[in-house]
Write a protein that binds this DNA or RNA. Sequence first.
DNA 1: CGATTTATATAGTGATTGATACAAAAACAG
DNA 2: CTGTTTTTGTATCAATCACTATATAAATCG
Lengths: 205, 205
Amino acid sequence: MPQRGRPRGFDREEALRQAMEVFWTQGYDNASLADLTRAMGINAPSLYATFGSKEALFREAVALYVQTEGSGIWEQVETAPTARAAIAHVLRATAEAFTRGDTPRGCMIVLAAPQMQGANAQVCDALKVHRQANGCLLERRLKRAVEEGELPASTDCRALASYFATVQHGMSIQARDGASRETLLAISDCAMSGWEALTGASHEA
Amino acid sequence: MPQRGRPRGFDREEALRQAMEVFWTQGYDNASLADLTRAMGINAPSLYATFGSKEALFREAVALYVQTEGSGIWEQVETAPTARAAIAHVLRATAEAFTRGDTPRGCMIVLAAPQMQGANAQVCDALKVHRQANGCLLERRLKRAVEEGELPASTDCRALASYFATVQHGMSIQARDGASRETLLAISDCAMSGWEALTGASHEA
DNA sequence: CGATTTATATAGTGATTGATACAAAAACAG
DNA sequence: CTGTTTTTGTATCAATCACTATATAAATCG
């Protein structure tokens, strides 16, 4: 019994992708139900029957964003041969992802709801969790590099992770302000050029 | 003829300061007229008679922010003896300003309206102008350092300015996410530790 | 076919949005 | 005092917000 009643007249994933793009460009507050339903090509009752509420739709959109857009940025952190290569890839992939042209500029996780206080504290907090997860991912990778001997034991992995996360977050603002791909790549080069001074691993390639 | 009619029953500057704090914590969209009038201690007609509109009030709040909160961060860029000292001060002052405790965390210019599209494109664009002005300020200071011999002629001042602006912007996100003053100071130290590698001025102090 | 089940479109819910009409209140000028 | 001017509080404006009640449309089941 695959389905009993009237079949759904739209593609759930495609509608969710459209909603994600609206939230990505407009943010959570500024994206109205009218904006969402227009972009998704459905009416409000279909949206609520399928996704539950605006907040639930946003959470699904965030999950889709992390899975599709974010994966290209963070997926190689664990598998990269060195911590240095891992972080360099994160920054370079960020510069490219933020200036793809067919998607909104900057990171949805950073830009969609930066206001902690007010009506949508839970939504903002959900994004904060994602941001901090990325910072922890970097920190864990750096700690592994210390264990493996790539970096000296004196390395302040927490500080380094916060630093590179800060650069990655700041690139969202730059991208929204119109920075070109070349500019963002130059920024990531600047961030990486201090690697030896940061880690004391001047003997590493 | 100092005044003709009924005198104003509240302090204009104090009310503006309260409005600034609401916009700072909640952002432009999320700050409702009810939030603003409650914090300012006045009713809506007084607000409109004094400031014109919500957008005009926001612009005045931004100007007040730049003048009061932002000055401590950017005022020494021109007067600092070296570009290195200037930028180090910007980052250190940023770490302190974003964690003062009695003011909201992070930069109002970065956090109050990051959505370019939608209802408030003009408001967002006004903030973008301020952000880019800071980047240009850094770039001009770096170019002066090249002219004065502090930095080699090969220095890419545009890229360096974008890089440090990116770090400064990213610190707003970190501050909103709860980063401590020590963490932000460590981030600024990380950003500065690559100075020699970035500028090729390894012989400078 | 009729019965059931699910999705759709229309229309409208109360609440809140930014912004005002209006008249009383509080100062001055004459 | 009587006008004039400006601010104030109350009460409200149309528009929009997120959300839903209701009835019809479109499918399967028996």
